[in-house]
């Protein structure tokens, strides 16, 4: 007969800013309650005590940028029953995936006087390029509400309710005035996945796509509309080439604009 035990949680870091794992600690009101239901077994940023795997739930932050990372993510997968990627680095390669469009040797030389000390891969890739992923939380950073929903759903044994519709729908529900219609501000809301709370339009700026592409983005239409709003092509390319540059739909958008050339 087995003794019932709390499920074990592990939080892993790859190349990242630490913001998404900080979101776990930012669940201030619920942190201690969660810790009562789930054993925080391996979370180096928060604890010096490490419980050996396997783990029931692994949250993986960051992208794969070194040979060592390629090996380590396979180990993490092997000792995790459920593996969830958290944030734009883990789900799409993050802002550091801008190297994928450039020459990394030149990057290293540009940054470090002794590039021979630096060991890095030529690309920054999402976790799902290396191992199978059970769920993903989008965003740069992730939303605390979605994180809480994910953990609650896990504990309740149900599928988390994480919509993949566009920011526009959330924006309308919030009652924002559309920044495109009212002010002619370029906004990636129509092609970007919801989850942030439509905060950019609420603060009178256009969405810059930090949750990555929504489920079925109409990129050609978006590009035509940005053109119509008078956004120069280099700017269009840059806005798609930021925090989710390597997400396939955004990558296709930035490459399509690149082919058109500058304006």
């Amino acid at each position: 007969m087995s003794i019932p035990r709390r499920p074990r949680l592990a939080v892993w870091k790859f190349a990242s800013c630490d913001g998404c794992q900080l979101s776990v600690l930012d669940l201030e009101d619920d942190l201690l309650a969660i810790a009562g239901r789930i054993e925080i077994a391996n979370f180096r940023e928060a604890s010096s005590a490490v419980v050996e795997g396997p783990y029931d739930l692994s949250l993986v932050e960051g992208s794969v940028t070194t040979v060592e990372d390629v090996r380590r993510i396979k180990e993490v997968r092997a000792e995790s029953r459920v593996l969830v990627t958290i944030g734009a680095c883990a789900t799409a390669g993050g802002v550091q995936a801008l190297r994928n469009f450039a020459d990394v040797e030149e990057f290293t030389r540009a940054v470090y006087a002794h590039p021979e000390y630096i060991r890095t891969l030529a690309t920054s890739t999402p976790i799902a390029d290396h191992v199978s992923v059970d769920f993903e939380l989008r965003g740069c950073p992730i939303s605390k509400a979605q994180l809480l929903e994910l953990v609650s759903a896990y504990l309740g044994g149900r599928v988390p309710n994480l919509p993949n519709e566009s920011v526009c729908l959330e924006c309308k529900r919030r009652g924002n005035v559309c920044v495109v219609v009212a002010r002619g501000t370029p906004c990636l809301g129509p092609v970007t996945q919801t989850g942030c709370g439509a905060i950019c339009p609420a603060y009178q700026r256009g969405c810059y796509g930090c949750f990555g592409p929504q489920g079925s983005p109409n990129i050609p239409s978006m590009l035509r509309h940005l053109d119509y709003l008078g956004m120069p092509h280099p700017e269009v390319q840059r806005v798609f080439r930021t925090f989710n540059a390597f997400a396939p739909a955004f990558r296709a958008a930035s490459e399509a604009v690149g082919e058109k050339g500058g304006k």
Binding site: V95, V111, T120
Partner: peptide, 18 residues
Amino acid sequence: FEPPRFFEAFLRGRSYLE
């Protein structure tokens, strides 16, 4: 040992507003 992310390199060519 955290791997480098090359911010100063890819900032080149970006707008000052970014």
